[in-house]
């Protein structure tokens, strides 16, 4: 009977299809966020991180999105915001900032804090406070009290970066600072500048996506 066979076939297809769909579904959620990037260990309880911020990722399905990049100990720039650092250590951070200024929603974050000495160094010069309107992004780990504003690049400057990851030859600001990690665990980090143009409050899209303007700091016992 064709109807019955059709039914059996349909049932089989449904069961198999359903199983595959459920598997895919779980896999979609299991799909790891970006690959973790290990901080370079440069001494006993001292590590170094190199990051850059770019105005546009330039490729992939979110090519227009603003994003962070991180550098592996092998000096390769990868599109990731999962950073692994050792516990109870000093972390020297260098951020190459290629994006222009947007301005802070809450001006309070114009003052670097949670960093050693309460200062950050912009192109080598110590800065204790940044005019909030000049901020392009911030690097903030609220649970560690770390918040560092990153001054934007002058929009008139020649040789703007157009292709991520950017190189040192292109217009940028170099910001360095040092913070101290606590015990092992996962700490979230994010940007507080409403830098997602085209979204309400400048806070949609990349501002709410891990791998762009949000990430996790995985502090590991060394």
């Amino acid at each position: 009977m064709s109807a019955r066979r059709l039914g059996a076939l349909l049932a089989a297809v449904l069961v198999v299809g359903g199983g595959v769909a459920i598997g895919l579904y779980v896999a979609l959620f299991l799909e790891a966020s970006p690959p973790p990037v290990q901080a370079a260990v440069i001494g006993r309880r001292v590590a170094a991180l190199e990051l850059q911020t770019v105005a546009e990722v330039g490729h992939g399905e979110n090519s227009f999105w603003v994003s962070y990049y991180a550098r592996t100990p092998g000096h390769k720039w990868v599109h990731s915001t999962i950073l692994r650092v050792p516990a109870y250590s000093l972390v020297h951070v260098t951020v190459y900032q290629y994006d222009s200024a947007t301005g802070l929603r809450n001006p309070l974050w114009g003052q670097p804090r949670g960093v050693v000495g309460g200062v950050m160094y912009v192109n080598g010069k110590p800065v204790k406070v940044l005019n909030p309107e000049l901020a392009s992004h911030t690097f903030a780990i609220p649970e560690l009290g770390v918040s560092v504003p990153l001054p934007g690049v002058d929009e008139e400057a020649p040789n703007q970066c157009s292709n991520a990851p950017c190189t040192l030859a292109e217009a940028h600001n170099t910001i360095t600072f040092t913070f101290r990690t606590r015990g092992p665990g996962k700490y979230r980090w994010q940007c507080f500048v409403p830098c997602a143009a085209g979204f309400i409050f400048g806070f949609g899209g990349p501002m709410q996506s891990i791998g762009y303007m949000d990430g996790e700091l995985e502090v590991q016992s060394s």
């Binding site: 399905e61 227009f64 999105w65 085209g198 979204f199 949609g204 899209g205």
Partner: peptide, 9 residues
């Protein structure tokens, strides 16, 4: 409408 076409959303 740039808010639609230039945001990947």
């Amino acid at each position: 409408i740039p808010a639609q076409t230039e945001t990947n959303q």
